[in-house]
């Protein structure tokens, strides 16, 4: 079972480099992150980001009649300085998918990709310190499975069936995740969508694919959600919002996020961000929320390189002490 991801990678890479590929893009990636946490002292990673080097290989395949297949493979070799060396290095497979264009309105995707739920479906946060609600809602940002993506007059839709395991391939306790989103087409100034999911999701920790990330319990968590999300591009601002309601096993839960990003017109290298997100783990009890306020600042050195800083402050934490963290990130994604 552990060899399946590796075989998938090699298969995708082999396909990508075969004579069939009409064109492809190869990006190198470097992510350096570090900072100080009031609870944990010096830290070298976040829940989603580690110090890492990696690449992304994106390819299009076509015949005389046009494109019929797209593949994407994004891998990071991560290093966690807070772990002993033997456990510090890991391989993270983020994107590993192939999408077949069945027609101009229907695509079928297989591999490792985002669940069809919420803002994570339309906003790429793979390099940003400020993350969306996906980790709180589902427990991971990507999963292994199949997806049907389609478009109709005035809206797009996604339906996905995945393993419910996240970064690593596992199937325990009948785990699975079914998710679906319907929303306005990409590219509009105001985009919105409605999502739903249900499944038995494994509770894991860490972004590692090899070795497998830590499984916190052999029992899957039964999850159900319905959510609404929106993004509004307004002049120099990007405003994002998401609200989710549902059940984790026997507890009713609710989550919401608000974020405003601002690029000053005269200094477009700079970007400011402010985010508030909260996830209430049990609506039937008081003070069960994980609530966080974050402020972010990014300076773009070029189209491929940026330096970011973020200050995050926990307003409340359900299972652990409140924390305040300051992080700095250097990020390169390009040639």
């Amino acid at each position: 079972m552990t060899k399946i991801p590796l075989l998938t990678i090699l298969m995708l890479i082999s396909i990508s480099n075969a004579a069939l590929a009409s064109d492809s893009l190869f990006y190198k990636e470097l992510n350096l992150i570090g900072g100080h946490s009031r609870q944990n002292g010096w830290v070298g990673h976040t829940q989603e980001l580690s110090n890492s080097v990696g690449f992304e290989h994106y390819a299009k395949f076509s015949s005389d009649y046009g494109d019929f297949l797209t593949t994407d493979l994004q891998i990071r070799g991560a290093y966690d300085p807070n772990q002993p060396f033997s456990d510090a290095i890991s391989c993270e497979i983020h994107n590993a998918w192939a999408e077949y264009r069945a027609s101009n309105t229907i695509k079928i995707k297989v591999g490792h990709f985002e669940p069809a739920y919420g803002l994570g479906q339309i906003i790429d946060v793979h390099s940003t310190i400020l993350q969306l609600l996906t980790m709180e809602n589902i427990g991971y940002t990507k999963d292994w499975g199949v997806e049907l993506r389609g478009s109709a007059s005035g809206f797009d839709y996604w339906v996905a069936l995945q393993l419910g395991s996240g970064m690593s391939i596992r199937r325990l306790d009948s785990s699975y995740l079914f998710s679906a989103r319907i929303g306005t087409p990409a590219g509009r100034d105001f985009q919105y969508g409605v999502s739903a999911l249900c499944g038995n999701v494994l509770d894991t920790e860490g972004m590692s694919t090899f070795p497998k990330n830590h499984l916190l319990s052999d029992e899957a968590i039964q999850k159900e959600r319905i959510g609404f999300d929106c993004v509004y591009n307004w002049n120099s601002f990007v405003l994002k919002g998401e609200a989710d309601f549902g059940v984790n096993s026997n507890n009713s839960v609710i989550g919401y996020l608000m974020e405003a990003d601002y690029t000053p017109p005269k200094n477009q290298n700079w970007e400011f961000a402010a985010q508030f997100k909260s996830f209430v783990n049990d609506l039937g009890s008081s003070r069960t929320d994980d609530s966080k306020l974050s402020l972010g600042l990014t300076y773009r050195l070029s189209q491929t390189t940026k330096i970011s800083a973020a200050f995050t402050h926990d307003l409340n934490q359900y299972h652990q002490p409140r924390d305040t963290e300051f992080l700095v990130q250097f990020y390169y994604y390009g040639k």
Binding site: L10, I13, N17, F26, Y27, K28, Q303, Y333
Partner: peptide
């Protein structure tokens, strides 16, 4: 795996 992948991929572009 990393070494194999680095050698197999050859084309280089930016964002």
């Amino acid at each position: 795996a990393t070494l194999i992948l680095c050698f197999v991929c050859s084309v280089s572009f930016a964002a």
